[in-house]
Amino acid sequence: MRHCVPALVLCAFLACTVSAQQRSTVYTSVISTGAFIVGAANSETGLFYQAGNGDTAWTHTGPMRIRANGFAVDERSRGRILYIAAGNGVHRSSDAGATWRVLTDWRVTEVLSIALDPRRPGRLVIGTAYGVFVSKDTGATWKPGNAGRKKPLFTSMVAADPHARDRYYCTAEDGLYRSDDGARTWKRTSLRATAVRSVAVHPGRAGMLAAGTENEGLHLSTDAGRSWTRCTAGIAHETFWAIAFDPSNPTRIYAGGHESGVYISRDFGASWVRSVKGLKVTTVHSLAVDPLDARVLYASTSWGGIFRSRDAGDSWEYAGLTDSQVVCVRMYAF
């Protein structure tokens, strides 16, 4: 028995350690708080993170006041390599946020999103107010990648397809575009809504993707964009900026946008229910599902900070970053 006690303690310690290691990390980007004025004494904005421990405290990392529109975390590096897509350009840290380097020069500005492809470690694809730019050397050099697109080239979001090598999607003012050659050339999919604002690729099912538009609803495709179905059953809103798939349940999808709250579908978009219980701000910029516990969701809002759900979106609780315009939230399990 005397020998068992330390062994039990050790086992308990290891269990806790494993549990702690398996906790997801939540990252968010805040572009503004309260009355943001360029050049004024603004409060902290930029990239924030927290271990998914259920409280409202967040840690800031990286430069402040750079209009951080989006970010990406290199999962292979377990959070050491971070990218911020910002008004100032693309920022990179290779030491978990201790030091940063701006990868882009004056030619690249108003960066709105960044996509990493784990199979192409050196390739970065960014969406900007002036179109798509591509780097093949981890940001050392950049080239525009907009062949096949019509002007204006405004691109609010780019996404890599994890199921098809060199395939990317980008939003545009005249629809959703797909590239099959590493974001060099693009072809418009059959989704030709006036302005597509968001796109999400299902992490587990090839060909499944969803797109949110300005004023023209939410659309789903099961064939990599060749055909689309507009989601209508149960949906009373028209502008969607946020989409998230449940990685553990292919039929469950979440979506949100302007004053919409969070819509939940449990049948791959055939029907939807609106969830606003506890969601004090209903304009939703971004949604993320915990890769380790699909019941846990985060919703980032416009001027309302972050909200968390512990019951797969049925109800929400305030999770911090008060008064902030939180434009992007993502969860990673390192």
Binding site: V38, G39, P63, R65, I66, R67, G87, T109, E110
Partner: peptide
């Protein structure tokens, strides 16, 4: 000190 480049 890390200044913002601005947007104008």
């Amino acid at each position: 000190y890390f200044p913002y480049r601005g947007d104008t």
